[in-house]
Amino acid sequence: MRSFHRLVLAAFPLITLVGARSYSRHFPITIGRPSTDGTYTIQDYYQGEDFFKYLMIFHLPSDWDFYTGSDPVGGNVIYQNKSAAQSERLAYVNSDGTTVLAVDSTSTVAAGGDRDAVRITSQNSYNSGLFIMDASKMPVGCSTWPSFWTVGPNWPYGGEIDIVEGINDQAKNQMTLHSGTSHSCTIDTDDSSEFTGSVLSSNCYSTETSDSGCSIMDSSSTSFAYGFNNAGGGVFALLWDNSAGMSMWHFARADIPSDLTARAPTPSNWGTPSGFWSAQTCDITDNFYEHQMVIDTTICGNWAGGAYSQSGCPGTCTDMVANASNYVDAKWVLNYVAVYQ
């Protein structure tokens, strides 16, 4: 439900390294296809300063870009560049190596005004793979709209995959695919045994004026917001397999598979996913390509603001923006983000 702000991404020059290795890693990287036993190997691994540092030795910019344009979903935010975000303590690394991406929670802002925030986009792009986010906390609070997603060029034609997304005091994670071509993409609602979540909408086709996509709500109360944070966070996983489809899992901290902890993930052992979009009812290859990862938090906007009065939150969304204390916990605390192939 991120709307046509995807078009803005395409307007900025980016270094796109499709299938390329990324150099800011803490251990050797092997790039390859899944082995016969279904185990995946690391292509890109981001932890701590990997989200921020400049790779001068390779004459490359940092692995992630800080987006600084206006928020195309109409949120009450001003996205900061890297230096400003670090200066304001909106993007930093804790002593334990976790990475924090936050919304300003100290400034005086008028009702309906804008708060400083952070949105980052990966330099590398992908056409398949196993995408992992391990976070100990995600942004919470009325008016917040956090998300971890991937997006292709020329939205919606290159597609969008929302791995983590929700608004206000939503209790469970909402997973969504957005397709923009004439090639069919729907959720296979005839076989509910393929996933554990609940279908919210089955047609993935999206346009600038109608972009709800095809969504599945996770069944777990630890998959989003306060429930996620109170469980010590956890892992979100997207397996993008062009021949099989899109599968998404959420694991609470205590339930993270041992093979994933060992950096030898074998999704075939993970059980039924929270969400699944079958290649039999969705043309994966034609609808999803050259995706970059995005992590952001906006405030209000066309979804969180539009649904605010139905969310059980006090007052109005624009009034909430003025309450700095509401954003003390509006922050991502990331252990790592990884892409396996």
Rank of each mutant, 00 (worst) to 15 (best):
I299V: 04
D319E: 10
T297F: 03
S274M: 11
T318S: 14
M320N: 02
H291K: 12
G312F: 08
Q310C: 14
G305F: 02
F288G: 08
P265D: 10
Q280S: 15
F288I: 02
G306V: 01
N302F: 07
M293V: 00
N323H: 04
T281H: 10
A307H: 09
P267S: 13
C313V: 01
V321I: 13
P314N: 03
G306I: 07
C313H: 00
N269S: 13
S278L: 04
I284E: 15
D286V: 15
A262Y: 15
D319C: 07
M293H: 02
P273E: 03
T318D: 07
D283G: 09
C313N: 00
T298F: 05
C282S: 12
D286Y: 11
T261R: 11
T281N: 09
Y289K: 06
I299L: 14
S309N: 15
G305W: 00
G301Q: 02
F288D: 04
T285M: 12
Q280D: 11
C300I: 03
G305R: 11
V294R: 11
W277F: 04
Q280T: 14
G315R: 03
A262H: 14
M320F: 00
N269P: 13
Y289V: 02
W277I: 10
D296P: 05
A264W: 03
T318A: 15
G306E: 00
T272E: 12
C313M: 06
V294T: 13
Y289L: 12
H291S: 02
A264F: 09
T318Y: 11
D283I: 04
T266Y: 12
F288W: 08
G315T: 06
N323G: 05
C317N: 01
D286Q: 12
T298A: 06
G271V: 14
F276D: 02
N269A: 11
E290N: 10
A307S: 07
R263A: 14
W270E: 13
C313G: 01
W303L: 12
A304R: 11
P267W: 15
T316R: 03
C300Y: 01
Q292R: 12
I284T: 04
G301C: 05
G301H: 00
E290T: 09
N269W: 09
I284F: 13
F288Y: 07
G301R: 04
Q280N: 12
G315D: 13
A279V: 13
C313K: 00
W303S: 06
D319K: 14
C317W: 01
V294A: 11
G305H: 00
N302Y: 14
G275Q: 05
N269K: 13
S268N: 15
Q292E: 14
T281A: 12
H291G: 09
V294D: 08
R263F: 13
T272Y: 08
W277V: 05
F276L: 03
S278G: 14
T297Y: 05
S278W: 07
R263P: 09
A279Y: 09
W277R: 04
C282W: 00
D319R: 13
